[in-house]
Design a protein around this nucleic acid. Structure first.
Lengths: 171, 171
DNA sequence: ATAAATGCAAAATCTTTGCAGAGAC
DNA sequence: GTCTCTGCAAAGATTTTGCATTTAT
């Protein structure tokens, strides 16, 4: 019989960036929401703050956990509904790094891509302009205009290194 | 309220390549299984044939449907177990093109990538050596050895075109 | 003969949704 | 005041699994 780990649940204990509890001014994401005319409820403001503060690629459950930690007034269903809404509005990007759960990050950040450490699951972002040009050229060659592209490199940390940064989401 | 399509089920009516019903010789995938010492049951042989014949990126349910069409002796659970096994053995690659279901294709084919038509969901494969070199260089720069990488370009068909190829899996 | 594979149905996960009450504008 | 949002629990969708039985080697 198969011998994979039984549960798809993963250790999500990792870094939840220190909550900037400056409740006063609107978070960056909140401003974007307002720009697009979204009705700003307490829950949306809360989720917007969590997203604005996040420097990683949290999944819905992790967002929910962080939101609860800030202010215990939100349900998972609302988190799901909100990330979907924000994705539709172009404020969030949904990612799939192979863990079975969708993970989110604010749009923009410029075009960047991901290197996933196959051992720890940690995700490193990087930028490379050459890729974008190349991708655009290929799309054109095939008769398409590039709308978006994603590049994910799965790699193994080189031996000599000594940079035990904590994993973002171990597989 | 949200206005997304209710069901995640998708039209999967598209091309099921003409079944090479030459039951005699083992399919290509079956040979690979044997090479790796897998026990060859009727079901595995069947699934191996479906995979060998496939020229697209079917999901489990589609594989199941095609398998049933050839020979009505397999269950979905076995298809799931088999694709997982073959993925672990490096015979299949699992893909995610954003439809919520994993899709599979035989490994090898050489390093190739995908351009997804955002309107129809059709997937076009392409190769480009420059990408591989670039990806390798980037991994090295970050202190990693590249194990694998995936590149997906989402594009919109240019207007002037007139190539109404049928979608592989419309979103 | 033995260890592994299958089928079935139940369970696990992740995500969406219907509905009644609460809240933003 | 109206129209949207939220919470809850239930339903959906996809994938995994326990167990008794069958099967490949």
């Amino acid at each position: 019989m198969d011998t994979r780990p039984t549960s798809r649940r993963q250790d999500q204990s990792a870094k939840a960036p220190p909550a900037k509890t400056s409740r006063a001014e609107p978070s960056r994401i909140e401003r974007l929401c307002i720009e697009r005319g979204l009705k700003m409820t307490g829950q949306r403001r809360l989720i917007a703050r969590v997203l604005s503060d996040a420097e990683d690629h949290p999944d819905v459950e992790e967002l929910y956990r962080r939101a609860l930690a800030l202010d215990n007034k939100v349900s998972v269903a609302t988190v799901y509904r909100t990330v979907r809404l924000l994705e539709e509005k172009g404020i969030l990007d949904r990612r799939d790094f192979g863990g079975g759960r969708a993970r989110y990050e604010p749009t923009e950040h410029g075009q960047h891509h991901h290197l996933i450490d196959v051992e720890t699951g940690r995700v490193i972002e990087f930028v490379d302009e050459a890729f974008e040009r190349l991708a655009q050229a290929i799309a054109a060659r095939l008769g398409f205009s590039m709308v978006q592209f994603r590049l994910e490199i799965f790699g193994q940390r080189d031996a000599e290194e000594s940079n035990p940064a904590p994993p973002e989401a171990p597989r």
